[in-house]
Write a protein that binds this DNA or RNA. Structure first.
Lengths: 147, 147
DNA sequence: TTATATTAGTTGATATATCAAACATTGATG
DNA sequence: CATCAATGTTTGATATATCAACTAATATAA
């Protein structure tokens, strides 16, 4: 955004910009929002799981999960049932037809990702990954100090 | 999120996670949303400018800008006036009191950023910056292909 | 075993981002 | 000059994230 800021600020800004770009463009290509795709992706990987576990993995609000799943259930993409051993928890999984549909999105996302990183070597990917991890750790620390 | 995906996918996921973390934590600390802060930051840097220019810099929707500014005007943080030479465009700037308030946020953000990058050398910052730029370019190319 | 606390999920209120449609103003063209 | 296109802003409809309050079920503890 600004050109008169510190180098660091610009890096952070670039990070946010790339992220926004990813969300916008991928969503535009597939018609599915990132968070919804994350939900579906997680269910695809894990199979049946509790809403709670799903929410923690995907890291969005409880309420948001409930509403996503409600819609996805209406469209027969996921199915839900109570855990017979603990009626507080509800298990979620992809339906058969949901599973098929998601496969297509996953392929599309894989292509998207390949394109995004097409000129990155293995080492570079690793490097980026490690830097992001460090950022994450540093930022977590900030929150702890102030909370 | 998932552990069975490609390395690249995980990097992308990490990027999104860091970004979300930044937004959540910074917003939590200051009580101001990122996009609103971006708007204010831009006005702080640039002084008076048209809504259009502001919108392009900050990269959020026209409608969103209008609504943000409406609120900020009500709270006497910004002031608006028509461009006398072209009544389609409205100029925006920080009010005096707005300018003072924003200064505090900017300091807070600067501290936040310093913490986030505290163990990054100059070279590392540059490296990260360049990688993000490459990602950005690659992703832009994807959209062009499909649109 | 009854009262209390915890946990999982839902719902309502609110905030904000997006798109599309509308509007006003200006510019360009016949 | 009259029309039509382009530009900047606004508004309405919709989507989705968040928080807080609530319900239901379970676990804990007096």
């Amino acid at each position: 955004m600004s050109h008169s800021c510190s180098e660091k600020a610009n890096v952070l800004y670039a990070l946010q910009e790339v992220n926004k770009q990813i969300n916008q463009k991928f969503e535009h290509c597939t018609g599915v929002s990132q968070s919804r795709l994350d939900i579906l992706h997680q269910l695809y990987e894990t199979g049946e799981m509790s809403q709670k576990a799903l929410q923690q993995q995907v890291n969005i609000d409880n309420a948001a999960i409930t509403r996503h799943l409600k819609q996805l259930e209406e469209r027969d993409v996921v199915s839900r049932r109570k855990n017979p051993d603990d009626n507080r928890v509800t298990f979620v999984k992809l339906t058969k037809s949901g599973h098929e549909k998601i496969g297509a999105f996953r392929n599309e996302k894989a292509r998207f990702i390949d394109e995004a990183f097409k000129d990155f070597s293995e080492e570079e990917q690793l490097l980026l990954s490690k830097m992001l991890e460090r950022l994450k750790v540093n930022i977590s620390a900030i929150e702890r100090e102030r909370s």
